[in-house]
Structure formats: structure tokens, C-alpha cells
Simulated scan of single mutants.
Amino acid sequence: MKEKPKVLYHGSQYLFDILMPRQANGQCEAEAQVGIYAATTMEEVIPFALPFRFYPDCPEGKLSFDSDGIISYLRYGAINPNGKGYVYVLPSDSFELVDEWEWLSRTPVKPIKVIEIAVKDYWHTISFSEEATRIQRELYGDISG
């Protein structure tokens, strides 16, 4: 059993005063529970903080991206190169380990600290499919960052 750290990290495109449990859309049961997911390092949550967007930006829009915990691969959708995201530093008290790297809290959590990140600082961690490259160019021009 992994020893619980004093703090955990959560990435989000949105700024909140208190994180509320939500239904996750994970690949398996451990990743699809109602709660707040967190990891032991800031690097692991950066892909979740990056503001990937549906295309088109409407209810019928589509977004598809994968991440290995550091590098993100955008299959379909876009990301504003001048956008920002948020990494939350959270007390680990209410969290339990649900798989080899993810921790889950089923109760609201007040962050200790919120770190604003800029997409441009993590641009090198994003790769694009041909379709995502086309969408990105259409919306933002050059994709070289």
C-alpha cells in the first residue's frame, strides 16, 4: 500500500474556491467514480489542467485526447495557445487510493493553494493528430506554439 502524502494535486480548466465531487468519465470503474481525483505529483495532473476544447464549441462538439500523465495527444478538438489552467494543491485527509496513481475524495475539498499554469509553458507536451492540427490551424493559425 502506497503511503499517503500530506498533499495531492488536481488539475482543472476551471477556477473554484472549493472542489466538489463530480461524475468522472474514466476508462474503467476506478476512473469513473463520483469524486475528486488527484495524484501525488503536479506533473501528473497538468494534462487535466490544460484547457482542451470541444470542436465545434457547441453541444454537438467533440473532444478526444489521451495522456500518459505527462504528454498529451490531441486527436480531435483544439487548445488556445494563450489559454490557462489550474493545478490545485489539496490536503490528502479525505482521499483514498483507487489505483496505482489516482487518489479519490468523495467529499468537497478546500484547496491549500491554486497554481495558475499557462498553456504556452506546456505546449511542448502536446502533440496533434492530422485532424486536430487542421482544427488548431483553423482556429488559432500556426501550431508551433
Rank of each mutant, 00 (worst) to 15 (best):
L19N: 13
Q33G: 03
Y86M: 10
E43S: 14
Y122W: 09
W103M: 00
G26A: 11
A39D: 09
R53Y: 02
G35S: 06
K62M: 10
V119P: 03
E131R: 14
A32P: 01
T41A: 11
A32T: 14
L8G: 04
T125K: 11
Q27C: 07
S144N: 15
E96D: 02
E60P: 01
A32F: 01
V34E: 09
G141H: 10
D57G: 06
M1Y: 06
Q136S: 15
G69Y: 08
E60V: 12
E60W: 10
G61I: 10
E116K: 11
D57A: 15
C28S: 13
F128V: 04
K2Q: 11
S127G: 01
S67K: 03
A32L: 01
E31N: 05
D121N: 12
E102A: 06
L63H: 06
I112N: 08
Q27M: 13
G141T: 13
L63C: 07
E116M: 12
N80D: 15
P47L: 05
S129E: 11
K4W: 02
T133L: 10
V89M: 09
P91H: 14
V87T: 11
F52L: 08
K6H: 10
C28L: 05
T107V: 13
P21C: 05
P81H: 10
S12K: 11
Y86Q: 08
L97S: 09
V109M: 06
I112A: 06
I126K: 00
Y14W: 14
E3V: 14
F65T: 06
P56L: 12
L139H: 02
G35Q: 05
V98Q: 02
S127W: 01
G77M: 12
N80H: 13
T125M: 04
W123K: 00
S144M: 08
Y88I: 12
L63G: 07
E100L: 03
R106C: 01
S105T: 04
E102I: 01
T133I: 03
I115W: 03
P5E: 09
Y76R: 12
S64C: 12
